[in-house]
Computed example of a mutant assay.
Amino acid sequence: MTLTPATVHASAVKIGESAVLIRGPSGSGKSRLAFDLILAGRTGQIPPAVLVGDDRVHLATRDGEMWVHPAPALAGLIEIRGLGIRRCDFVSEARIGLVVDLMAEDAERLPPRSALLLHENGIELPRIPVGAGHSPLPLVVAALLTTESS
């Protein structure tokens, strides 16, 4: 197992068999999107969703895939704006299947294919760049429930 940086400022939610890694600057809505995805999983809009980690997570490369783990001190904790830090169910690791970049400067209405892919440590992952002021939840749900047109 190779650590990619030991710790990154991000949140992650396991949805079905893989995780959505949520990146962005402080205050961009990472925790909010993570909780929205957990709620969407509970209501059946998407496959069941459970927290991996909020605020800080560890990334690792293993067998040509990228994995995410919660920071031990924050495992099972999520920030809910207006309520503070709350405890919730979590998993100890998940394979990353999608990366969401909040407040991305390269977000476009019809992004080029290259903007929808992230290349890191020899691994290619689907990516959603979300512009400031745009709700990320519909984009993530669409990415999970639809397929690309030709």
Rank of each mutant, 00 (worst) to 15 (best):
A19S: 04
P70G: 11
A34P: 04
A73C: 11
A34R: 00
Q45Y: 09
V68A: 06
V52F: 01
R23A: 08
G44V: 10
L59D: 06
G64E: 04
E17A: 15
P72R: 13
A73F: 12
D36Y: 00
T43D: 13
A49T: 04
I38R: 02
V52Y: 02
G44P: 07
D55T: 06
G27M: 11
G64W: 03
L51G: 03
L51W: 04
G29E: 08
A40F: 10
P25V: 14
S18V: 11
A40T: 07
I46L: 09
M66C: 11
S31G: 10
P47L: 02
D36F: 01
P47M: 01
L74P: 08
I38D: 00
D54K: 01
H58N: 14
Q45H: 11
E17K: 14
P70F: 12
G53H: 04
L37K: 02
G24F: 08
S28F: 05
A60M: 14
I46N: 04
I38E: 00
G41Y: 07
L21M: 07
L37P: 07
R56W: 12
G53L: 02
L21S: 06
V57S: 05
V50G: 05
S18Q: 15
H69C: 00
E65S: 14
M66Y: 07
G41L: 09
D55C: 10
L51N: 03
D36N: 11
R62G: 07
G53Q: 04
L37D: 07
G41C: 12
T61L: 15
M66A: 08
D36M: 12
S31R: 09
V20F: 01
A73L: 15
V57Q: 05
M66E: 13
V52R: 06
G24R: 02
